[in-house]
Nucleic acid binder design. Structure first.
Length: 327
DNA sequence: GGCCCTCTTTAGGGCCTT
């Protein structure tokens, strides 16, 4: 009931949660089984996959766009207030303000890698935007996938940018699709997004969010949007740019791998294109599969990713400020 | 815009993200 109040406050009448176990999830499931992906994920998840990982329920604002026809929304009548029964119990929505998160410093964690792996939530995410400029462009779509799987392991939504979309040819997202009532604006979405991520966190654990080219695009863009809406990225969100391990892979593979782009990595690992490239959820599902292959090849674990590749939003912000001041 | 590589660091160019 408190959730309902929250969304009422946000004025998101079309925010909905529904079962997305349509052909998309089936494809991913079948694809993963065919490609022996399930066991490979154990590199990222030394404790092994949770048996719930292929349970097929996802979270969406209901504004994921018409182009995602393969993900048939089979239960649109489920309202957002049902989220309390479908996600973890800590979706406290009595206040629209984001609580100060308890920081979990990597260096304070136990040296036992298994414990780190068990308490770390790994989420792959991707954004689509109206362009490359963090100052002038806006996010128009965001998608996340918790690699531990289970109920509501994915989250996706279109975002109303309050501006004309001029790069529809890239992602297929039109002005008409996002500039209308029912599609949440970023300022309304951020609290929902933060609560979703929190709902995926393990008790006392930390979150590792992975995006391709995230260090120079997705994360700075996200920081910019949070700041524009007077929010801050939670301090216990750690990020990894999958481009970094991709560079290592390129060094190891030499000319076999010609580029570190997501599409090249997808082709390298013979992962079929599911959905339209440059739609957020399609790219997330590809990156999730690329990651499992890449971490296997590089023998990377979650502690390894945290130690060698992770960064925080504050580090990105501080670096940006230093560079501005030095100019 | 930022990272990385190299024909480099007193620099320039390619890549990657939408």
């Amino acid at each position: 009931m408190r959730i309902a109040m929250c969304f009422s406050h946000f004025q998101l009448p079309r925010c909905q949660i529904h079962t997305l176990y349509g052909s998309w999830w089936k494809k991913v499931n079948n694809l993963s089984k065919k490609q022996e992906n399930v066991s490979n994920y154990q590199l990222l998840c030394p404790g092994g996959w949770d048996s719930r990982r292929w349970i097929q329920k996802s979270l969406s604002t209901g504004a994921e766009g018409k182009n995602v026809s393969s993900r048939k929304a089979t239960n649109l009548s489920h309202k957002v207030n049902d989220v309390s029964s479908l996600t973890h119990s800590n979706l406290n929505t009595s206040s629209v303000e984001i609580e100060e998160f308890k920081s979990v410093h990597i260096e304070q964690k136990t040296s036992d890698n298994k414990d780190i792996s068990k308490c770390t939530t790994v989420i792959v995410f991707d954004i689509e935007t109206t362009g490359f400029s963090r100052e002038n462009d806006r996010i128009i779509e965001i998608a996340l996938q918790d690699l531990s799987g289970g109920v509501n392991s994915t989250f996706q939504t279109l975002v109303n940018p309050d501006m004309i979309v001029t790069n529809q040819q890239i992602h297929g997202i039109s002005t008409y699709m996002v500039n209308k009532s029912g599609v949440p604006r970023m300022k309304d979405l951020i609290p929902i997004l933060v609560r979703y991520v929190r709902s995926r966190q393990k008790p006392g654990g930390q979150t590792l969010l992975i995006a391709h080219n995230g260090k120079t695009f997705d994360v700075p863009f996200l920081i910019s949007e949070f700041n524009r809406c007077s929010y801050e990225i939670p301090s216990d969100w750690h990020f990894v740019d999958s481009m970094s391990p991709a560079r290592e892979l390129m060094k190891a593979e030499g000319s076999t791998l010609s580029s570190k782009s997501l599409q090249t990595l997808r082709e390298y690992y013979k992962i079929p294109q599911t959905g339209k490239a440059h739609r957020a959820m399609a790219d997330v599902s590809i990156l999730a599969l690329v990651l499992q292959k890449m971490t296997r090849d590089l023998k990377l674990t979650i502690p390894g990713l945290l130690e060698n590749y992770s960064f925080t939003a504050s580090e990105i912000s501080n670096n940006s400020k230093k560079k501005k001041n030095s100019k």
